[in-house]
Design a protein around this nucleic acid. Structure first.
Lengths: 245, 245
DNA sequence: CGTACAATTGAGAATCCTCAAGAGCAGTGG
DNA sequence: CCACTGCTCTTGAGGATTCTCAATTGTACG
């Protein structure tokens, strides 16, 4: 097969390197890392990157596009675990047993870097700062899961919706995109499932925020008109949960 | 201060080593690991092992007793993140920024092994199987967080309660204790907070399961009379969530 | 034995879900 | 160009679950 002459993006010239594994590494170390990266062909919308239960040989870093990861329980119930944006690492949950515990699906056309775990481990032993960075990313994964637990545990539908929008806002901002205007790559159904709500409730909460003037919604297009107010919604102050009360 | 002549338990003669970091290590490697372990004095009930925001120098493995970890949000709302039993590693969430993101509190008299991170990292570089095991434990932490997300996202109060009891049952079983008779080391308030419910709902669900004869409740003493039925409650089959329907 | 705290139980209220219908938009074909 | 189909999303009404508030019971400890 002929290779189209697209400029090959690898770690040393990747704009996402500050968010991804190369962060904190020396130039030559980044080059070493780039050596073990396998480029995969782009994925189409709805295409699966990997499936729950599959043996895990590699981790995947997103170059472009976005993904939804979800678990299908024994009863066939889907739970969306999260959404992944460029620069983020997918597959970390599989480190326990060497099998993916989630299925990961492209929400739009997307491209990823494949990082074979064997080589990554070897490199970690050689490059302490890579090990540190991998640990940091693992820690981030854990703490972002913690955020989700708080979100699902003690938040009303309105707070969940506002938090979800702010989460995306922050992450887009970190990527250098606008923090106030962005397009949702996921459907209402995906959002509802992620937040532990129904699609109708998501729709109603968006309508409510829209009526308040906090956001403007046009299909999947979101514009945040009042970040402060959105933050206020996320941080209410229920007296009955206050410590030592 | 005089040292009471208690037999000093370290990794090589610790009964929990199969569940803890030493798993999969050679004898001499376990000894090396034991060398970096600092023994801390026992903790009393309600005593804090570490607090949210504190700089994290060490991870902690539980020798005996149990812990509750929780996050206090900016509004002062507490969210219980999880409960830790012997053989489990605490502090992993801090690997991202080097600061604890949770506060961890003893639910009863407890003792822990302190694992200085610097030394642990050095040892990981020397002992590949230790690094593998640490990764495995990190993966387990992530996948147990995923279980919590599913629990909070798509479960009714009854299912949450049943799942909680089964979770404990499995973990006690793994520790060599009875999987059907155990004492809860946490209060109803702790359980409620963990499950995203109110204390009244927890109480009512326990009463309900008790009336059904599935369990017997005597204060914090729990006896599971029908494990199968409890499993059935956890695995209902809501048609509307089924994939491709 | 009385106090303090934890847990249970009851009644009414609020939130979110369920079911059902309608609106908006993209793609297809006449 | 417009109707038709299919899909996603929105909107409405009623119902179920869980929360809130309040009172009571139970247990531990001085």
């Amino acid at each position: 097969m002929l290779e189209i002459n697209a400029p090959k993006i690898t770690c040393p010239n990747c704009k996402l390197s500050e968010l991804c594994l190369p962060y904190g590494l020396q130039k030559d170390e980044v080059a070493q890392l780039a050596n073990i990266v396998k480029n995969k062909r782009p994925l189409q919308t709805d295409e699966l990157l990997y499936s729950q239960g599959q043996a895990c040989q590699s981790l995947y870093a997103i170059k472009s596009g976005s993904f939804r990861s979800f678990i299908t329980t024994s009863e066939g119930v889907e739970q969306t675990m999260g959404f992944y944006l460029p620069g983020e690492l997918m597959g970390l949950d599989s480190l326990q047993h060497g099998r993916f515990t989630c299925t990961t699906q492209a929400l739009e056309t997307a491209s990823v870097c494949e990082l074979p775990i064997i080589h990554l481990n070897e490199l970690c032993a050689q490059i302490p700062s890579l090990q540190t960075q991998l640990m940091r990313i693992l820690g981030k994964e854990i703490s972002s899961d913690h955020d989700k637990i708080i979100l699902l545990g003690h938040r009303t539908a309105k707070e969940k919706m506002a938090t979800f929008l702010l989460m995306l806002s922050h992450r887009y901002n970190a990527l250098g995109f606008s923090s106030t205007t962005f397009n949702l790559s996921m459907s209402r159904q995906d959002i509802a499932n992620f937040l532990g709500l129904t699609i109708e409730t998501v729709s109603r909460q968006l309508a409510f925020l829209s009526k308040q003037g906090v956001i403007t919604v046009k299909q999947r297009g979101i514009q945040i008109n009042n970040l402060d107010l959105l933050n206020t919604i996320v941080n209410p102050c229920p007296i009955h949960y206050v410590v030592n009360e």
